[in-house]
């Protein structure tokens, strides 16, 4: 008896439904188009967001960039941004259609060429009304952008270590020791990253090596001031990007992201301290 009632009840709606579907082929065609478009767009937006997150942009920048791009194509975009994943919901007002998707972000490492490139791209999309293919081409171009040559990075970072040493009051020999310590420490870090060690362990190795070299200079040179060479030989490791991003996230009200970034920076600082500790104990300074 109950089953009969159900069949009768839904039976009433069946013809009505079919009628509606067959009567509006144009609308359904349009809907299909919107669905296709929103799927493609969310792929692009998530890719852009993941690239920004990995390259060291702060949370509000990711959010404004993605909203800016989505608005060009007539969609609203809402985002949940965390350290390791992005959740995106693209919304079309007229059709009342949602498209939600999720993407894991890549491991982090500051790369400001990508941040700058994506920022310029987003403004070009607004001003020149790019299509999706153009955006994909630009994304692929940005991904293939090279880093500086390794020797240039090593020399310049070594020079910046030596500059720090000079600023703190060290003389020419101290500067040379800091330069060598930074140079070799950075090589150790790059090699450790290549060998897929844990990111914090890479920092530890680098800090240990640098202080081992700078401490050796201080230990075997009579009359050398301990502070200058040792204190400045690890400064290339300081987590400047996570800490500054952390505070700007906290100020923007993205408290969770701010805490996550701050914690990340603190662990890096702790790894540096641990590396220093081990080397300092060897020389007993």
């Amino acid at each position: 008896m109950l089953k009969c009632c159900f069949i009768l009840f839904f039976g009433c709606f069946l013809p009505l439904n079919c009628h509606w579907v067959f009567k509006l082929p144009v609308a359904s065609d349009m809907k299909e188009k919107v669905i296709k478009s929103s799927q493609e767009l969310s792929k692009i937006l998530l890719e852009v967001g993941a690239m920004l997150m990995a390259a060291g942009a702060n949370t509000s920048r990711i959010r404004t960039t993605i909203t800016r791009i989505a608005n060009v194509y007539g969609f609203n975009a809402e985002l949940l941004i965390t350290h390791r994943a992005l959740m995106l919901s693209v919304y079309d007002d007229k059709l009342d259609y949602f498209q939600s998707s999720l993407k894991r972000t890549f491991p982090h490492g500051a790369n400001f060429k990508v941040v700058s490139g994506i920022s310029r791209m987003s403004w070009k999309i607004v001003e020149e009304q790019w299509n999706y293919e153009q955006i994909w081409n630009e994304i692929n171009r940005l991904k293939s952008l090279s880093h500086y040559p390794r020797i240039v990075i090593l020399l310049m970072v070594g020079l910046s270590g030596a500059s720090f040493c000079r600023l703190f009051g060290g003389g020419a020999p101290d500067m040379l020791a800091t330069f060598v310590a930074t140079f070799i420490g950075l090589i150790v870090r790059q090699e450790a990253i290549k060998m897929n060690f844990n990111a914090y362990l890479c920092v530890f190795f680098a800090s240990f090596t640098s202080v081992l070299i700078a401490g050796g200079y201080v230990h075997f040179t009579p009359g050398a001031q301990a502070e200058y060479a040792i204190a400045t030989s690890v400064l290339y490791l300081i987590p400047g990007v996570p800490l500054i991003n952390s505070l700007s996230d906290l100020l923007d009200g993205n408290i969770m992201n701010g805490i996550m970034r701050g914690m990340n920076g603190l662990i890096i600082a702790f790894a540096i301290a641990l590396g220093m500790l081990c080397s300092i104990l060897i020389y007993y300074i």
Partner: peptide, 12 residues
């Protein structure tokens, strides 16, 4: 020099 060194480390 210190600023420029870090700039290159961050791949600007």
């Amino acid at each position: 020099c210190a600023a420029a060194g870090f700039a290159i480390l961050f791949n600007v």
